[in-house]
Design a protein around this nucleic acid. Structure first.
Length: 137
DNA sequence: GCCAACGTTGGC
DNA sequence: GCCAACGTTGGC
């Protein structure tokens, strides 16, 4: 199983919105970046991901699960763009902030730190474990 | 609100 | 195919 990180502006689509969708989940649409799209193509049903709030909050707030593989993005007719469906699994007891991640030596190589603009990114097994622990899981 | 970093577009 | 111009993102 692979791990990922999904970034969103909470004012547009936040963790609460994701939770409200329940097990039905929602497609992660609106991605218009090739790198991010390619990562979504690599995802498999059952993969887990962090849900990250950018902008004012800048913290990992929850865990999601991929429930559908990449398919055409329903928000555009441009067939270049695809997206997966994800559902909320559980909130982190304590959100893990970007500051915390940056101040942890073992997380210095996280894509979140190195390429902050990428909205969908891979997370290594080790990074996953560390952030989960920091979040109280 | 500013600005740096990055990706994309389009002219040549 | 290169590169300048532009738009967008996201941290500060």
């Amino acid at each position: 199983m692979a791990y990922w990180l999904f970034k969103s502006e909470p004012s547009v689509w936040g963790w609460d919105d994701q939770v409200a969708k329940g097990d039905a989940g929602e497609e992660w649409d609106g991605v218009r970046n090739y790198q991010a799209r390619n990562f979504m193509r690599d995802m498999a049903v059952g993969d887990r991901g962090f849900f990250y709030h950018s902008q004012s909050e800048k913290a990992v707030v929850g865990i999601v699960e991929v429930i559908a593989e990449a398919h055409p993005d329903s928000t555009t007719d441009d067939e270049r763009w695809e997206c997966v469906d994800i559902k909320a699994v559980k909130a982190l007891p304590t959100p893990v902030t970007l500051d915390q991640i940056k101040s942890c030596e073992d997380l210095a190589d996280m894509v979140l730190v190195k390429n902050s603009r990428l909205s969908v990114q891979p997370v290594s097994d080790v990074e996953w474990q560390i952030v989960c622990e920091m979040g109280g899981l």
